[in-house]
Design a protein around this nucleic acid. Structure first.
Lengths: 146, 146
DNA sequence: CTTTAATGGTAAATATACTTTACTATTAAG
DNA sequence: CTTAATAGTAAAGTATATTTACCATTAAAG
């Protein structure tokens, strides 16, 4: 609907595109039986592996503090997407493992993300889509110093 | 530092690039005397014009609810970037006008954003940069239906 | 005119997604 | 064994909004 999009700073376009993606993903997951999941949940879940991961490792992978991961993991446990168990090898550590429901969610989410990205490819062309990813990666890698 | 960036979904790359931009912009504004401004502040401020704008209009332009704009405007008033005055033509309405300090901030911010975007151009090439913007606009305009 | 509906705005509570500060428990290193 | 590092927790705070509910004023309908 807004036709004045082109006057937005590039960074805001990125934010808006991200939010659109977020909405599409969560809407779609809501429709297939996962109405209670958030994007942060997914951003943590997608780093889990079948053997279970420690919160600290998870925090590094997800780019969050361990406290944030602790909170999200607690929420995921309440929603029955993960189990939090004591680590066998380290009495301080805990292992976060997905439940069956959690595994199904991850698979679904990956699928939906892939679908959305395929739509990106259709909209931009395969080459255009790869160029978009490459450009974003370049900007993320480029030095911060002004 | 992270070398596994390429495994992130495209939308997350957008979010990360946005956050990097946000940090650069706010850091730079902090250095030149505006340490108390937030990105939301700027997103509201940049829509103001010299004659003043009503909150509802501002909300539409900024893509926010009028309540959100009300809160942000109140904050901007406290920081002396805007004045909020009763509208002469409509007893319900209020007009939001920038102060001198507000005008200076806007100019500075626009300048810094332009600088950052010039760095984008350097990193991606002029053509690559335009392609990035065009791609984002295409994704934002494309239909939501799955 | 006057009743009603729409509009401009405010208030308060809630939500999300974190961070900061401060702490405990456990393990590892000396 | 004592100290330092590491894994995690707890509580509060920050930022950025939204939802729900409301009031005041203006515009429209009769």
């Amino acid at each position: 609907m807004p036709n004045d999009m082109n006057q937005h700073p590039t960074a805001r376009l990125m934010l808006l595109a991200f939010r659109k993606f977020e909405k599409q993903l969560l809407d779609e997951l809501g429709k297939v039986g996962f109405p209670d999941v958030t994007l942060s949940d997914l951003n943590v879940l997608r780093h889990l592996d079948p053997e279970g991961l420690r919160a600290t490792i998870l925090a590094e992978h997800a780019g969050l503090t361990k406290q944030a991961v602790g909170q999200i993991a607690k929420g995921l446990e309440k929603k029955a997407y993960v189990r939090i168990t004591a680590d066998a090898e380290d009495g301080r550590a805990k292992s976060i493992v997905y439940t069956k429901r959690g595994r199904v969610l991850i698979e679904r989410a990956i699928h939906v993300v892939r679908d959305i990205e395929r739509h990106y490819e259709v909209a931009l062309g395969k080459h255009g889509y790869q160029a978009l990813r490459a450009s974003l990666l370049t900007l993320l890698a480029s030095g911060d110093a002004p």
